[in-house]
Simulated assay, not measured.
Amino acid sequence: MNPIQEYFYRIDEPERSTLLFLRKSILESDPDHITETFSFGLPFFKYKKKMLCYLYYSKKYKRHYVSFYHGDRLDHPLLIQDGRKKFKILLINMEEDLPVEVILNLTEEVKKHIK
């Protein structure tokens, strides 16, 4: 198993399936330009080799989240800055429908800020 597969394997269900679906959705949203790497022990998504977003778990909120680079330039009511300078996070509630459209729209917004 590669490190990205190991990362997801360590997550319990149903969170694992939800995050794998989100991962697939992000990668398929722009397969020619979005790639996945494993940095700092986390799955990172890059757009044309520049940072786009990553997945992680918040101990503070006890939820998984998507963290968006250039989040300081994004304005969306679901995003939380929480003391970060360049990133904003979107918490994922496993009890509700996954906001895939919102997440993909936010990745499109971030791509506009990548040179």
Results as ranks from 00 to 15, higher is better:
N2T: 03
N2G: 02
P3L: 12
Q5M: 02
Q5S: 09
Q5W: 00
E6G: 02
E6A: 05
F8I: 03
Y9E: 09
Y9K: 13
I11K: 00
D12K: 15
D12M: 07
E13V: 00
P14I: 09
P14E: 10
E15R: 14
R16K: 15
S17D: 13
S17Y: 06
T18A: 06
T18F: 07
L20E: 11
R23K: 15
K24I: 06
K24F: 08
S25E: 14
I26R: 02
I26N: 03
L27S: 09
L27H: 10
E28L: 11
S29K: 00
S29I: 00
D30S: 07
D30I: 04
I34S: 06
T35F: 03
T35C: 05
E36S: 03
E36M: 03
F38G: 04
F38Q: 01
F40N: 08
G41Y: 04
F44P: 05
F44I: 10
F44S: 07
K46A: 02
Y47Q: 10
K49V: 03
K50I: 08
K50Y: 12
K50F: 10
M51K: 10
M51E: 07
Y54F: 14
L55N: 01
L55Y: 02
Y56N: 15
S58F: 04
S58V: 04
K59G: 10
K60C: 01
K60N: 05
K60Q: 08
Y61D: 05
Y61N: 09
R63I: 04
H64G: 00
H64V: 02
V66R: 01
V66G: 02
S67K: 04
F68H: 11
F68G: 11
Y69I: 06
H70R: 15
G71K: 14
D72P: 05
L74P: 06
H76L: 08
P77C: 11
P77Y: 11
P77A: 12
P77W: 11
P77T: 12
L78W: 07
L78R: 13
L79R: 11
L79A: 08
L79I: 13
Q81M: 09
G83R: 13
G83A: 07
R84L: 01
R84A: 05
K85G: 00
K86F: 10
F87W: 09
K88I: 13
K88G: 11
K88F: 12
K88A: 12
L90R: 05
L90A: 12
N93S: 14
M94H: 15
M94G: 13
E95N: 14
E96I: 15
D97L: 12
D97Y: 04
L98S: 08
P99D: 03
V100R: 13
V102T: 15
L104Y: 11
L104T: 10
L106F: 11
T107Y: 03
T107E: 00
E108S: 14
E108W: 06
E109K: 15
K111E: 05
K111Y: 07
K112R: 15
K112S: 13
K112Y: 08
H113D: 01
H113G: 00
I114A: 09
